[in-house]
Amino acid sequence: MGVTWSQLFPPQPTFTEKNLPSQKGKVFIVTGGTSGVGFELANILFKAGGKVYIAARSKDKALKCIEKIKSTAQDDSSETGQLEFLHLELDDLSTIKASAEAFKSKEPKLDVLWNNAGVSLPPLGSKSKQGYELQMGINCLGAFLFTELLLPPLKAAAQNSPPGTVRVIWTSSQAIDNQPRPEIIMAEAVAPPQDQVRNYTISKIGNWFLASELAKQVGSSGIISVTQNPGNLNTELLRNAIWYKYAVYPILYKAIFGAYTELWAGLSPDVTMDNNGCYVLPWGRIHPSPSQDILRALKGTEDGGTGRAKEFREWCEKETSKYM
């Protein structure tokens, strides 16, 4: 109950634009960077001198966001970086390789990938272009494929960076702490139940599974992979659940606070190789007491776990293999 309460009413953020070091020379991707948390995060990174690729579906919307961010920067600032648009449609696996290749044709390295984009509670029956339940298709399969395709520039950055400074950040939700069955049942991933809340929760548990599995895969290269709950926020993520937004409105925070969570996960020195694969809470803390069921799922059977995370990653790999 204490952890749930502290996610609803987090302590003040400790890592913000006010104490963020210069990010000059760093290259970042923020998926879903045209609104909400992604927009606020891109704004912070740009004003700290980073080169930020805003990965989104709409070029027109992205360019308007870029102009808005630039217009708020001080003309005489020596810290401002660069902003670029990167076309990305996470609901269509057949297009994601082209997006990754477009990035790699421009940049030899990638310092931090924020898998920020996602969808929550779309109308029941909503599907991706390949016919997957939409939340699974975007939040897990699309993000997994995009990340796998960007491992070469991430590893290139890690070769010339201190261990743990190159990172992949995944986005989960407090919903995973509030479920009586926090483990993913693969049957539900393959054949989604007629329950969008459950489907959303499955995708968010999946994000932690993918973060943990990637940490095992690339940790030896000095790369960190973690997932985070950005917080309860008043953003467009709730556009499909207006009833819920009104019900919890008194405890919703501005998007900037979610950006602080993601900023901490992506750049704080408090996240180290020793806690690779961890889960970050609002507005920048490591989860002190995750569900024991999830912790068992993160471990392989050889280590006394259920191997559920590995099973889920292998399923994602199989489903996306022809689009690699």
Rank of each mutant, 00 (worst) to 15 (best):
V190M: 13
R181M: 13
G164C: 12
P182Y: 02
I184E: 04
A191P: 01
R181Y: 13
V168H: 05
P192C: 03
Q194C: 05
N199V: 13
E183L: 06
Q194K: 15
R198Y: 11
R198N: 09
V166G: 00
S161I: 05
Q174K: 05
A189V: 14
P192M: 05
E183Q: 13
E188K: 12
S172M: 02
S172H: 02
Q174N: 04
P180Y: 09
S173T: 08
Q179V: 13
Q194W: 04
I176A: 01
D177M: 08
Y200I: 08
I184N: 07
N199K: 10
P180W: 08
T165N: 14
Q196I: 14
P162Y: 03
S173A: 06
I185F: 09
M186D: 01
I185R: 12
N160E: 14
N199W: 02
E188Q: 15
Q194H: 12
D195T: 09
P180H: 10
S172F: 02
E188N: 15
P163W: 04
S161M: 09
V166A: 00
G164P: 14
Q196M: 14
Q174E: 07
E188W: 13
V168M: 04
T171H: 03
P162K: 15
G164F: 11
P180Q: 11
A187P: 00
S161Y: 03
A189I: 12
W170E: 11
S161R: 14
V166H: 00
N178T: 07
V190I: 15
V166Y: 00
P182M: 00
W170Y: 12
P162I: 05
V190D: 13
P182T: 02
W170P: 04
N178R: 06
G164L: 13
R198P: 06
P182A: 01
E183N: 09
D195N: 15
I184C: 05
T171R: 04
E183G: 07
P192Y: 02
Q179R: 09
I169M: 10
R181Q: 15
S173W: 05
P182C: 01
S161D: 12
R181D: 15
S172W: 02
Q194N: 14
R181S: 15
T165A: 10
Y200T: 10
V197T: 11
E188D: 15
V197K: 11
A191R: 01
N199C: 15
T171A: 07
I169T: 10
P180V: 12
Q196D: 12
S172Y: 03
R198G: 05
Q179N: 13
V166M: 00
I169V: 15
P192Q: 06
V168K: 03
A191C: 12
Q194S: 14
P162S: 15
I185K: 14
Q196E: 13
A189S: 10
N178M: 12
S161P: 09
Q179K: 08
R181I: 14
Y200R: 11
V168W: 06
P163G: 08
N178H: 05
S173G: 04
T165I: 12
A191F: 02
E188S: 13
I176S: 01
A191Y: 01
N199Y: 01
T165H: 13
I184R: 03
P192W: 02
P182I: 01
Q196K: 09
S173N: 06
I176Q: 02
